[in-house]
């Protein structure tokens, strides 16, 4: 009997561990498998935040997302082009206030409020409004955000239209010993930004990395390379695609 109780307790514990790591909103990741934080130092004060058509992992340390995941289809991208509305940046009340960036942090910071899952990918008005959550935002160099980053986002939309669908994860990288912060909340300024794109119908996966500076260039990486750089893993992307390298992005 005692053994049975022990076995039951062990099973319960195992279940608890699985549910702690399982995603609350897996529908935006391939095979329902959301990105995983491998670097244990990055796991502190993280919280998954689900929105109607994207999801993200928020860090109370960096005061922003570590990854933001979306599933795009040719028709969702097409609908998003007709989305014209006034949106408003906001602080998600689900986050502990002392772990979240505030609107004042970005004011006169010299940085744009850079979307990770882009506003221009959102097919619904609700989704577009939600993309202005500061949980989906990082301090981004203004000319980077408005030029090359915008072209990269457009290239991903074109690829989605050509390929039928795409799973995209976007986020910041923090490299080097010392980081810059903005505002009273000390929002971390990323040193680079990344995008991981998986096109299931074409069995292609790749990553793009860009410095968070007024740059005009980007670097193509394999998914394995990006996993090593970011401290994240993308279990929904087939392993066999993670070392394949593609040339570049058309039109960027």
């Amino acid at each position: 009997m005692q053994r049975r109780i022990k076995a039951f307790a062990a099973a319960l514990l195992a279940f608890a561990c699985i549910s702690a790591s399982a995603s609350d909103c897996p529908q935006f990741s391939p095979n329902g498998r959301a990105p995983v934080v491998v670097n244990s130092k990055m796991r502190a004060s993280t919280q998954e935040v689900c929105y109607s058509d994207f999801a993200l992992l928020h860090s109370g340390i960096t005061k922003g997302p570590l990854w933001s995941a979306e599933h795009l289809t040719a028709s969702s991208v097409d609908q998003a082009k007709n989305n014209t509305r006034t949106n408003r940046f906001f602080v998600d009340k689900r986050l502990p206030p002392d772990e979240a960036a505030q609107l004042s942090d970005y004011k006169r910071s010299g940085y744009d409020r850079g979307h990770m899952s882009p506003a221009g990918d959102r097919a619904s008005k609700k989704g577009m409004a939600e993309s202005f959550s500061l949980a989906n935002i990082v301090p981004q160099d203004p000319s980077n955000n408005r030029r090359i980053w915008s072209r990269i986002e457009q290239a991903v939309r074109r690829l989605t239209e050509e390929s039928g669908e795409a799973y995209v994860v976007t986020g910041p990288l923090f490299s080097g010993r010392q980081l810059q912060t903005i505002g009273e909340s000390r929002v971390f300024v990323p040193t680079q930004l990344y995008k991981v794109v998986y096109l299931p119908q074409r069995q292609i996966a790749f990553a793009v990395v860009i410095e968070n500076t007024p740059t005009n260039t980007y670097t193509m990486k394999t998914v394995h390379e990006l996993e090593a750089m970011s401290g994240l893993a993308f279990p929904g992307i087939p392993d066999g695609l993670k070392d394949k390298r593609i040339g570049g992005l058309r039109g960027v």
Partner: peptide, 15 residues
């Protein structure tokens, strides 16, 4: 023109 607000620095907690 308005100057940017001063920014801060932090040790990278992830390395």
């Amino acid at each position: 023109d308005e100057p940017d607000a001063p920014s801060g620095t932090a040790d990278n907690p992830f390395i």
